[in-house]
Each structure stands twice: as C-alpha cells, then as structure tokens.
C-alpha cells in the first residue's frame, strides 16, 4: 500500500513549495490522500524553504514526520540537513549543478540530476523543479506525468497556460536524466 513521505528542500525561489504542491495536487486528482506542510517560519525568511509532502492510499496520520522515504534536495544546506533523515532503502534525488557534496550513504539510492543545466538547455531556468519532479516520478511512479499535467492546469493561472508544453518537456527531460543516472 502506498505511503510515500517526501521532503523537498532548497533555497527560496527554486520552486520547492510549488513542486510539492503540484505533486500533491496530482496525487489528489488521481484519488490519493495527500498532505503538504510548508515551512513558513524564520528559516524560510532566511532564504531556505522546505515542504513535507505525503501521498498515501490510506488516511494520513501525522502531516509532520522526521524520517522520509524520499528527499528531493536542491541546495547544499538541505543535503546536510536531511541526508541522515532518509529511511534505509529510501532515495535522494538531488540537483547536482548546485550540490557538490552529496551523501555517501550506502543504504539508500542517491541520484544526481543536473536539473539547472537541463533547464538552461530548455531556455527556462524556472522549470528545474519540474525536471527533478520528472526524475523522481521515473524512479517512483506514484503518479503519472499526465496527472502532473492535469495538476499544472489547475495550479497555474490561465494566463500561464502557454507554459504547459515546456513543463511537460521538463518532466520528460527529468525522467530521461533519471534513466541515465540509474
């Protein structure tokens, strides 16, 4: 039975909170239970942001957990803060253009995704978060890319719907990078 506890963390502006929201929305569209708990305190104001997103087939008990199945990490401080909190057998998907020192744990899967580089190639640095989301979903297909697109349609105001195709490309580019990294 699905119960995926995910921490997404990075600098403010990297799309950390919106990645979690998109994932949550897509999971909801596909009929799953979901909780999304953002950091909204002083650490967020100091520049780093994180959110705990839980996707489950059953009722979600605590929306706040300290150990995670998956870490999607976008900067070095996040790697240092969260690498020890991934459950054995879990995974870290990290942004390898920004993070130079990754976890050296042997009991989890660690995947380097150069999302910022890949986003540059798509001429839109802002889709780096969708590249990481695509990479994560390639490794753990808890929801479909179609579900994510459905969610983006709802999350993005209509005036930004011209950006839907590039988000799709980003998700697919992320999936391809994960296939190469695995």
């Amino acid at each position: 039975m699905l119960n995926e506890e995910i921490i997404i963390a990075g600098f403010g502006g990297q799309g950390v909170l919106s990645m979690g929201q998109t994932l949550g929305y897509a999971a909801m569209v596909e009929g799953k239970n979901v909780s999304w708990m953002p950091s909204y305190g002083p650490e967020m104001r100091g520049g780093t942001a994180n959110c705990i997103t839980i996707v489950s087939d059953s009722t979600i008990s605590s929306p706040i957990v300290s150990r995670f199945d998956t870490g999607i990490l976008l900067n070095q401080p996040s790697m240092e803060k969260f690498e020890s909190r991934i459950k054995p057998g879990g995974i870290i998907v990290y942004e390898s253009t920004n993070i130079l020192h990754a976890s050296e744990r042997k009991d989890i899967g660690i995947y380097a995704i150069p999302a910022a580089d890949a986003a540059n190639k798509l001429n839109n640095v802002k889709v780096a978060n969708m590249i990481l989301l695509g990479a994560f979903l390639e490794k753990k297909p808890i929801i479909s890319l179609d579900g994510v697109m459905e969610a983006l349609k709802k999350v993005l105001p209509e005036r930004y719907h011209n950006l839907l195709p590039i988000n799709r490309q980003a998700l697919e580019a992320g999936a391809e990078l994960m296939r190469q990294a695995s």
Partner: peptide, 10 residues
C-alpha cells in the same frame, strides 16, 4: 494552530 492553518490537504 499554525500548522493546520498553513498546511494543504484534500
């Protein structure tokens, strides 16, 4: 409380 107010759920 602040957590229930700030978090998102279905």
């Amino acid at each position: 409380d602040g957590a229930i107010g700030q978090m998102m759920e279905k």
